[in-house]
Design a protein around this nucleic acid. Structure first.
Lengths: 99, 99
DNA sequence: CGTGTAAGGAATTCTGACACG
DNA sequence: CGTGTAAGGAATTCTGACACG
């Protein structure tokens, strides 16, 4: 929706923005930690959110965490978000609490 | 500073985002209406601000305005901004009006 | 496991020019 | 003036593999 989430950046620029090698960036995708879009021609396209996520991933790897662990943590975080949003939705439906 | 102003988008994606041809986008640059960055290799890089500006330019062209006229209007707009900021600065220096 | 690299090919972009109008 | 197009070349990216550890 916002600029931050538009997938418009090529891998070369992502490499420059993050300081990571293109090899690393592709590898984190292979491990299902990041999900760029693709052009018709097959070129990867990333968002600024992806750039930030990649920096986090690189830091976790640097701290000795394995990609499989990082993936699990991503899932936990995602699950928490879904749960919180459901609770919010229910509260809103029942009590009409706004925002 | 913000995501909106980071020059990270290739001309192909700009073409897709704006609906303009790459020929048009390059031409508006030739007429000094837009100023992308360049990679070492010479590839153009645009920001989301540039994308919006390009849409405005295309609309003005479509309305029959010439590129030289558009450039003049851009300058006027820029001059107004500089003037307003100077006034603000002076007021702030003399009266300490905040923000 | 995470990352570098050389290999060959494909997609993307660049410039300068000719065309039309 | 604004834009399309074919031309030739250069920069960018892609995949699959081998290497090291």
């Amino acid at each position: 929706m916002s600029y931050k989430d538009r997938k418009v950046i090529n891998i070369g620029m992502v490499s420059e923005l993050t300081g990571l090698s293109v090899r690393q960036i592709r590898y984190y995708e292979e491990r299902k930690l990041i999900f760029p879009n693709r052009t018709e021609g097959g070129t990867r396209k990333y968002s600024f959110s992806d750039v930030e996520k990649l920096i986090d991933i690189a830091n976790q790897i640097e701290d000795g965490m394995q990609s499989s662990e990082i993936k699990k943590m991503q899932k936990r975080k995602s699950d928490r978000k879904v749960r919180d949003e459901m609770i919010r939705g229910q509260l809103n439906a029942v009590f009409g609490i706004r925002k």
